[in-house]
Structure formats: C-alpha cells, structure tokens
C-alpha cells in the first residue's frame, strides 16, 4: 500500500493505516524534535503530541506533501511544548549546567559521537529560531528549498537567505566557542 493510500485510509478512520504511517515517520519526528532543541526526555511526549494532533487534523489534509504537513505540526508541537512548560528559556541553561556540573555522561552525550558534534549541536540550538529551523531542515532532513519554503510559509529566496545567514552565524559561533581555532582554514 503506498503512502497516499495509507493517508486516504487513515482519513477514513482506519487506525491500522494510521499506525503504519506513524511507524514510517516517527523517527523523522523524533530526530527533528531533538534537532529543534527538545530534550531527549521530552521527545517521546512531543512525538506523541504530534501524532495525536496529526490524526485530529487528518480530515483536513488536502493532498499537499504529507511530510510538509508533518514538519509543520512537529514544529508547532515543539514550540507549544516549551511555551506551556515555560521551558524555552530553561532549556539553554540546562544544557550549560548539564555540561559543566555533571561528570556523568548525559543522555545527550550518548547521541554525539564526537565532542565537536555536541558543540555544533549546542551552537545551533543557540541560533535564533528563524535561522535555526531552515538550517535544520536543509542539512539534517534533506529537504529541498521549495519544501522548506512551504513548511515555513516563506518564499524560496527568503529561505536561501536565511540558510546562508544561518551558516555564517553558526560558523562564527563555533569559531568563538573554540577560541577561533577554526578560523582562517
């Protein structure tokens, strides 16, 4: 059964079809949520929230690209989650505290193969959302400029500009973090 059939069945209330859709996409949601800054402990909740919302909105789905919709909902779920819990500001502090105070390897540490990866991830999380999200979608979700534009309701040139600017900011951030060790290569 192809994706459009699964969607049509799920829209008609077929939970089994919806189960298949979830199985197919939950890793995408989990990873995207983490990349957006959701903590590992909270990813399961956010993913659950995404798929519950998605199911509720399914009757309104009008055959645009399914993943476009999925990303939109995931993004909103991640935002809502932190808004509700007041965690957005705590989140960044927690990163810093976790790393500086604890000698135990955190759950996040198990994700990153190298220290450089963790640093880059943190630097990316510190970026303003308007730069961070296009960058994540482009680099880590392998999405075309056009689809990113669709997800974020922006024009394609604006997306390109954001990604370009995000790269510059991120490079600068990493250079500052590493005391400029990577500059001038």
């Amino acid at each position: 059964m192809d994706e459009s059939e699964l969607i049509a069945k799920a829209q008609a209330g077929d939970q089994a079809a919806y189960g298949e859709l979830m199985t197919k996409y939950y890793r995408t949601v989990e990873k995207f949520a983490f990349q957006c800054g959701v903590r590992l402990d909270d990813i399961s909740d956010v993913t659950q929230e995404v798929f519950i919302k998605l199911y509720r909105f399914l009757p309104q789905f009008n055959q645009q690209r399914f993943t476009t919709w999925l990303y939109k909902i995931t993004l909103n779920a991640a935002r809502d989650y932190y808004r509700k819990e007041g965690r957005e500001t705590e989140k960044r502090e927690r990163f810093v505290t976790n790393q500086s105070n604890s000698s135990e390897p955190s759950a996040e540490d198990q994700v990153f193969l190298f220290e450089e990866d963790r640093e880059l991830h943190e630097a990316m999380i510190r970026l303003d959302e308007k730069y961070r999200i296009p960058l994540i979608l482009f680099y880590f979700q392998d999405i075309s400029y056009q689809q990113i534009a669709d997800i974020l309701n922006m024009t394609m040139p604006a997306i390109k500009t954001r990604i370009f600017r995000a790269k510059e900011l991120l490079k600068r951030e990493i250079s500052l973090q590493s005391g400029g060790a990577f500059n001038g290569q």
């Binding site: 199985t23 990873k31 983490f34 990349q35 590992l40 399961s44 199911y55 994700v111």
Partner: peptide, 24 residues
C-alpha cells in the same frame, strides 16, 4: 562537520510507542 552531526542524530534514542497514540 554538519555531515558528521547528521550521523550523530541517528543515535537519538527512540522511546515512542505508536500503540500509545492509537490507544489514546
């Protein structure tokens, strides 16, 4: 570095259970 980071994200552990959503 971005490519390496992308590989790291494959290690994000999965705790999601679709069954829970269907039950809800």
């Amino acid at each position: 570095r971005m490519k390496l980071l992308k590989k790291s994200y494959d290690h994000v552990p999965s705790t999601f259970d679709p069954n829970t959503v269907l039950q809800k």
